[in-house]
Lab assay of single mutants.
Amino acid sequence: YCPACDKSFKTEKAMKNHEKSKKHR
């Protein structure tokens, strides 16, 4: 789950990829 974006991810890999993504924050 990403509190900054208020989005939840089913896998930890998806969240790690999201955190590295430029769309994050």
Rank of each mutant, 00 (worst) to 15 (best):
N17W: 07
K7H: 08
C5A: 05
K22E: 03
H18F: 03
E12D: 12
T11Y: 00
S21D: 06
S21F: 02
S21A: 10
H18K: 04
H24M: 10
C5G: 03
R25G: 15
H18C: 04
K22V: 06
F9W: 06
K7R: 07
H18M: 03
K23Y: 04
K23W: 12
K22Q: 07
D6Y: 00
C2F: 06
C2W: 00
P3H: 04
M15Y: 07
K13F: 08
E12L: 07
H18Q: 10
M15R: 06
M15C: 02
K23P: 12
T11G: 09
E19P: 06
K23A: 14
H18A: 07
K13W: 07
P3Q: 13
K16V: 03
E19I: 12
H18G: 05
N17D: 13
A4Y: 12
S8N: 10
F9Q: 12
C5Q: 01
E12F: 05
F9D: 12
K16Y: 02
K23L: 06
T11P: 05
S8P: 04
K20S: 10
C2H: 08
H24Q: 12
F9I: 02
T11R: 04
K10C: 03
K13R: 09
P3C: 14
S8G: 07
T11F: 03
E12P: 04
R25K: 15
C2Q: 00
K10V: 01
D6I: 03
N17T: 13
P3D: 03
S8W: 00
S21L: 01
C2V: 01
Y1N: 15
H18D: 05
A4W: 01
K10W: 00
N17R: 13
K10M: 01
S8Y: 04
H18E: 07
F9E: 08
N17V: 10
K13Y: 06
Y1I: 15
E19S: 10
E12V: 07
K22D: 09
D6N: 11
K16L: 08
C2D: 01
C5H: 02
R25Q: 15
S8F: 01
K22C: 04
T11A: 05
S21H: 05
S21K: 08
H18S: 11
K23Q: 14
S8T: 09
F9Y: 08
P3W: 10
S8I: 00
C2Y: 05
A4S: 14
K7I: 11
Y1E: 14
S21M: 13
A14D: 10
K7Y: 02
K20C: 10
K16G: 09
K13S: 14
E12A: 12
C2S: 08
A14W: 00
Y1W: 00
N17M: 13
A14V: 04
H18W: 01
K22H: 06
H18L: 03
K16H: 05
K7C: 08
Y1P: 05
M15K: 04
Y1K: 10
K7Q: 11
K10N: 08
K10F: 00
R25C: 14
D6L: 01
K16E: 12
K7A: 04
H24W: 01
A14C: 03
A14K: 04
K7P: 01
S21I: 03
M15P: 03
S21V: 05
H24Y: 02
H18P: 09
D6E: 15
K22N: 06
E12G: 06
E19G: 10
S21Y: 05
K22F: 03
M15H: 05
E12H: 06
A4R: 14
C2T: 05
S8K: 13
Y1M: 15
P3K: 15
E12S: 11
R25E: 15
K10T: 09
R25M: 11
A14F: 02
F9G: 07
E19F: 12
E19W: 09
R25V: 14
P3Y: 11
C2K: 00
S21W: 03
M15Q: 09
N17C: 12
D6H: 01
S21R: 08
R25F: 10
E19C: 11
K20A: 12
Y1L: 14
S21Q: 07
A4M: 14
K7S: 06
N17S: 11
P3S: 15
Y1G: 12
R25H: 06
S8H: 07
K13C: 11
K16Q: 12
K20V: 10
M15L: 12
S8E: 11
C5I: 03
E19R: 12
K16S: 10
S21T: 09
K7N: 06
C5M: 00
E12T: 13
C2P: 01
H18Y: 02
D6T: 03
T11C: 01
K16F: 05
K10R: 03
K20D: 09
P3G: 15
K10D: 12
T11E: 10
A14L: 07
A14E: 02
E19T: 11
K13H: 12
S21P: 12
P3N: 07
A4P: 14
T11K: 04
D6F: 00
K16N: 08
M15G: 02
F9S: 07
K10L: 00
A14M: 07
K10Q: 02
K20H: 13
T11W: 00
C2E: 00
T11H: 00
E19N: 10
A14R: 09
M15N: 07
K23C: 06
K23H: 09
S21G: 09
C5F: 02
E19L: 12
D6W: 00
C2G: 00
E12M: 06
